[in-house]
């Protein structure tokens, strides 16, 4: 009996210990699992942060690149309106006329003289300004024309498109352009030429 009791006791004790061990193992398992889970969660979070940080930096870099490589008034080739024979020497570097000293030989006064016949013959219905922006390439040739028009209170308006084309053709015939220069190197550059229209006539070119 004693034995039995003892056995029982032993058995009982054994079972208790076993239960306690199971409990401990269970607790240990649980703890390990939660740490593991936490670790996995932490690892995932870090990866997510890294990914978000990378994507944000990438998007911002692309945006800044776009914003710092494009300028107001840049002209891109348009096969529908531009002459494909007009060649630009360096498409990656087209400064403004005032940065590289692009000019017409003897100035706009000379342009006025050369276009005097057209100036006298062209009649317009409204007043304002016709502004041509174009490229004077490194050889002193002109092309890639774009036009902006404003009225006498400097708001956008519309002039007869045929006359605008006629004026553009007359600019294309001007042959004494001095290409812009920087350190003895001739460069392509953007130029701006304004026609002032008053009382139906061109009254000034500058």
């Amino acid at each position: 009996m004693i034995f039995k009791v003892n056995q029982f006791t032993f058995t009982n004790t054994n079972k208790r210990v076993q239960t306690e061990i199971y409990l401990l193992v269970d607790i240990f398992y649980c703890c390990t699992q939660s740490t593991l889970k936490r670790n996995i969660q932490l690892k995932n979070k870090l990866n997510i942060f890294l990914l978000v940080g990378f994507l944000l930096a990438l998007v911002l870099t692309i945006w800044v690149y776009y914003q710092t490589t494009n300028r107001i008034g840049d002209i891109t080739f348009d096969k529908d309106i531009d002459n494909s024979e007009f060649k630009i020497c360096n498409e990656d570097r087209i400064p403004q006329y005032y940065a590289v000293g692009t000019n017409y030989q003897n100035g706009e006064k000379a342009i006025k003289k050369e276009l005097s016949e057209l100036i006298n013959n062209l009649n317009f219905k409204n007043s304002g300004f016709i502004t041509y922006r174009f490229i004077v390439n490194c050889k002193g040739e002109v092309g890639s024309f774009r036009v902006k028009t404003i009225d006498s209170v400097l708001k956008e308006n519309v002039f007869d498109s045929q006359k605008i084309k006629q004026l553009q053709k007359s600019i294309e015939k001007l042959k004494q352009w001095n290409a812009g220069k920087r350190k003895d190197e001739t460069l392509d550059s953007y130029y701006v030429l304004n026609f002032k229209i008053q009382n139906n006539k061109i009254t000034d070119i500058f």
């Binding site: 008034g73 300004f129 956008e156």
Partner: peptide, 14 residues
């Protein structure tokens, strides 16, 4: 300034 220097006067003067 940039608009007016490039001949885009409507935007520049606005």
């Amino acid at each position: 300034v940039a608009f007016n220097k490039r001949g885009e006067y409507a935007k520049g003067f606005e």
